[in-house]
């Protein structure tokens, strides 16, 4: 990584409140380019809130977000960030191929290509490419969302609870894909309950009740201790 390259993500005093409920305490964090990071914590700790704010889906109550040197509201920030949610959101009337084509084109790509095809094959979706994802099971929809998050260019990948609903082969493929993405230089930010995932990342940030309680390299045992697993 070049020293001059801006950080993949800089969040400064980022917080989120809903009336009298504090979902995320003021949080400052910097993710260097190409870093893989796990965001860990129990339910309601603020992981998803943080990711959704970085993705632009939630309005921060306070604080600022910069992505690759651009303000979150800039179109360049959107071009840089890919978000893989835990609740796949798909069109009812588009097939998997049409989804991938559309999203690729929205990001300036050529549409359906070999990489999309290969992702579908690896995730076991090759027979379902021309089917409507609206009729898929939860796991297949999650796999579709994985394809859609990856068929477009990005340098920051935000992943929220990626293993929910996935079968074991799907989980292994996703772990491989995340490793490949990281190897290619993209920063990854994965919110997960799975303590074993921390062994695969450069850095772990643990949250409890909307507050950062740990930031560094953690072992599985430490994670279990931190999040009460």
């Amino acid at each position: 990584m070049s020293e001059a390259q801006p950080a993949a993500l800089v969040a400064t005093d980022l917080s989120k409140t809903y009336d009298d409920l504090v979902a995320l305490q003021p949080m400052s964090i910097t993710v260097p380019p190409g870093q893989s990071m796990a965001l860990i914590g129990h339910n309601g700790s603020g992981k998803s809130t943080f990711l959704r704010m970085v993705a632009g889906l939630l309005d921060p109550s306070a604080g600022e977000i910069e992505i690759a040197g651009f303000d979150l509201t800039d179109v360049e920030a959107r071009a840089t960030t890919s978000f893989l949610p835990d609740d796949p959101v798909l069109y009812d009337d588009l097939s998997l191929r049409e989804h991938a084509e559309y999203i690729s084109k929205l990001h300036g790509g050529d549409g359906w290509d070999d990489y999309a095809e290969s992702l579908c094959v690896r995730l076991g979706l090759e027979e379902r490419i021309d089917d409507l994802p609206s009729r898929f099971s939860r796991g297949l929809r999650q796999k579709t969302a994985i394809v859609l998050a990856l068929v477009r260019p990005f340098s920051l990948l935000l992943v929220d609870e990626p293993f929910v609903g996935l079968d074991q082969p799907g989980k292994l493929v996703l772990l491989d894909v995340l490793a490949e993405v990281h190897a290619e230089g993209a920063a990854t930010l994965v919110a997960t309950h799975d303590p074993s995932y921390v062994e695969r990342v450069d850095r772990s940030v643990a949250l409890r009740d909307g507050e950062v309680i740990f930031d560094g390299t953690a072992s599985v045992e430490e994670v279990l201790h931190l999040v009460g697993g």
């Binding site: 889906l57 360049e76 069109y91 559309y102 999203i103 929205l106 300036g108």
Partner: peptide, 15 residues
């Protein structure tokens, strides 16, 4: 809007 439009179109780098 449709929810997928918010997720895919408004989060993409289109105007």
């Amino acid at each position: 809007l449709e929810r997928p439009d918010v997720r895919h179109v408004l989060l993409s780098p289109v105007d």
